[in-house]
């Protein structure tokens, strides 16, 4: 177990190193931030001065090495546009994005697993027809369209839910969280649901397919022959058996919802990392983009680590080595 964790940490460091190198190279090739930062009529002297100041006059390897040296001390450089530490900018907004993504995933799990179970156990029910066609829509419809439709119905026509922003937040351990206040919850509901729709659809289909396979197994029949109730057979035995692929997908999708919350954040004017990064990409604000991608990569690595730990908990045949 300890060796497993150590090796995962080592692998994570490697992954982060590779990500940083690739991203740094792409950014280096993708344009000159000086043109974005200075007015068009700036003199050549001003441009040279700016370039020296930001360290952009040095060759690629020198720039990368100095970035790496600083990054190892937790300093990803200062944002060109905001003139603040990039890490600080990202971390200020990370809670909003994380809150949105985690709420979306919790919503997806709470809706998707029961719906998938029902669809598998009662394949002929009318509700199953609705669940399955609904999940097809959920997979097919674009997120931005769903978001706009929700705003139209619940904010414009019905006026029940606010259409933008995060609302009131409360501080918990120094982190601003919206779901602690009623207003924050109301603001969170629609964006979280928008982000969750696709994931619900995916979980429904995965749970249903897995259940239909497991329910044909001999041990299910043997459990019934023991006299166990159908509820215990399905909710305890069958469910635990299908959790491995479900947990895998939940883990991967949590990463994706964090990374791709950008669309939802734009629709609902959610003050998360997404908006910051879009702006940073437009202005070629290298430190912010780098810091963002490294933070996201770190989250992916962490989530997958948690998924691996969950595996060994769910299935005794899987050992962590």
């Amino acid at each position: 177990m300890f060796a497993f964790i150590l090796r995962r940490i080592y692998q994570s460091v490697l992954v982060l190193f590779c990500v940083s190198l690739v991203v740094f190279a792409i950014l280096y090739l993708s344009g000159d931030p000086i043109q974005m930062l200075l007015p068009a009529d700036a003199s050549q002297e001003q441009i040279d001065e700016m370039r020296r100041h930001l360290g952009l006059d040095e060759p690629f390897w020198a720039q990368y090495l100095s970035f790496l040296r600083n990054a190892l001390q937790g300093d990803m450089g200062r944002s060109f546009t905001f003139n603040q530490p990039a890490v600080k900018l990202i971390l200020e907004r990370a809670p909003a994005t994380l809150e949105l993504a985690v709420s979306a995933m919790i919503l997806a799990i709470l809706l998707g697993i029961p719906a998938g179970l029902f669809a598998a156990v009662k394949p002929k029910s009318w509700l199953t027809q609705i669940i399955m066609s609904g999940s097809l829509f959920g997979i097919s419809l674009p997120v931005f369209w769903m978001g706009i439709m929700l705003i139209m119905v619940f904010s414009v026509f019905l006026g029940w839910l606010p259409s933008s922003g995060r609302g009131q937040t409360a501080s918990f351990g120094g982190i601003q969280l919206g779901f602690l206040t009623w207003d924050g919850c109301k603001h969170l509901l629609m964006p979280a649901f928008t982000l969750a729709i696709h994931q619900v659809a995916m979980i429904v289909r995965l749970v249903r397919a897995g259940m239909m396979e497991v329910m044909l197994q001999d041990y299910i029949k043997f459990l019934r022959a023991k006299g166990l109730s159908e509820r215990r057979v399905v909710l305890v035995h069958a469910l635990k058996n299908i959790m491995i692929p479900v947990v895998t997908i939940i883990g991967l999708q949590t990463g994706y919802t964090i990374a791709f919350a950008i669309v939802t954040e734009s629709i609902f004017a959610w003050p998360g990392m997404g908006k910051l990064v879009i702006d940073a990409i437009h202005s070629l604000d290298r430190p912010v983009i780098l810091a963002y991608l490294l933070v996201v990569a770190l989250m992916f690595v962490f989530i997958n680590f948690m998924v691996d730990l969950t595996y060994s908990f769910l299935d005794p045949r899987i050992r962590l080595k």
Binding site: Q217, Y219, P316
Partner: peptide
């Protein structure tokens, strides 16, 4: 009433003790 199945490899739930 009790029953014993053909294949002991598959008649016990693999993820419970």
């Amino acid at each position: 009433l009790a029953m014993v199945f053909q294949d002991p490899q598959t008649s016990l739930d693999p993820v419970f003790t």
